[in-house]
Write a protein that binds this DNA or RNA. Structure first.
Lengths: 211, 211
DNA sequence: GTCTATAGCCCGATAGAC
DNA sequence: GTCTATCGGGCTATAGAC
């Protein structure tokens, strides 16, 4: 792999694990197996590196937001696919959501867009829940959908932080992501038909196996 | 107020707003209106300051964990009082939960106790929910209580972070805390009797007015 | 108890050889 | 494209006058 790409991937991993502000450029260079000076050949400064990572994030978000329920018969499987994309995004770019306070004064590129991303994500979930309602999978008062969508997003986004703060292993492969997905299902599983709950469980389980 | 106490309170505020790792001792001294050198008369080093704050936190947690449903007739009001104490704790010591990655290698005092605190908090919520069940306020499958308690804790703990990441004002007085309390109610409001929901709403509203 | 001055360290970034 | 050497700046903490 090209050095530039290795730097980006290593940086993403280190930032996710130790926070952006706690990873020094010396740490990053060592982990990449290159000299610190070499970093500045590939990136003008630490912020430029952050911005390169941000671009990858924004592309991934755009693709995930485009995943909408296609066909009434497959809304549950479409939902599971969207959840898989969202969790991959949250896992791979966790530090971008989390470490905003470390970026200093000017990272407008990201900070201006995150509110919109959350807004679009909430409405994406409402679209899915509405489609499940229409397909007869979900039995729920329509005016409860907005708050349910918010609860879903909060649980999916923060269950990893909850596990970390609780002292549990929250790394990839520890089952933390699976645990977050399972936990979010408890928010509306009781309102699904038995058949829909079973299909959704299956679809979600298959996706985490493949990821 | 004694200088030492003013340092502690100012530090708590600055840490909550800007993160522990992003607040320099120069910032803190300036905000206190004292010379930086004077800080080291009152505290051996930055970590000693953190440990002094941690002690106050642990005392507050212990008091809050001791708030249990007293009497079947008042379980809803007791619950509201406990929620008020928990939110005050989360608001006042937000950085302690959040900034663990900034503390360096050795803050065993806090890091060893947080997992236990979360565990005790979850079981505290299960106790309350169980009491509401017994008092006939809540109609819910008993085996849904553990996951509901987890969802409640996650929403109460992270709704403030969610608002901050979303670009909303998450400071005290902005209504963020009230919004978190309101949001957590959507997790089980539909399972409360109409009478219980009304009483709980009232009790929670009175408490946030007083706080 | 509070101040000024400064030591000593670590960090991000530059210069220039190879 | 990668390295070594080093600079300037900011940070925590100390020393010592008042």
């Amino acid at each position: 792999m090209k050095t530039r790409d290795r730097i980006l991937e290593t940086a993403r991993d280190l930032f996710n694990t130790h926070r952006f502000g706690n990873v020094t450029t010396a740490d990053l260079a060592t982990e990449c197996g290159i000299a610190e000076g070499n970093l500045w050949y590939h990136f003008k400064n630490k912020r430029a590196l952050l911005e390169a990572l941000t671009e990858g994030f924004l592309v991934e978000v755009e693709h995930r937001l485009a995943l909408l329920p296609s066909d009434e018969a497959r809304v549950l499987e479409d939902y599971a696919a969207m959840i898989a994309a969202l969790m991959s995004e949250i896992r791979r770019y966790r530090f971008l959501y989390r470490d905003q306070a470390d970026y200093g004064e000017h990272t407008d590129q990201l900070l201006q867009r995150l509110p919109g991303i959350y807004r679009d994500t909430l409405s994406q979930f409402q679209t899915y829940l509405h489609a499940m309602l229409k397909a007869g999978h979900l039995e729920l008062d329509r005016d409860r959908l907005p708050s349910l969508a918010t609860n879903i997003v909060v649980v999916l986004r923060y269950h990893l932080e909850f596990l970390r703060e609780s002292g549990a292993d929250s790394e990839v492969g520890s089952g933390a992501v699976e645990s977050a997905v399972e936990q979010h299902l408890t928010l509306f599983r009781h309102a699904l038909t038995a058949h829909a709950a079973e299909r959704l469980d299956l679809a979600l389980r298959q996706l985490t196996v493949n990821a």
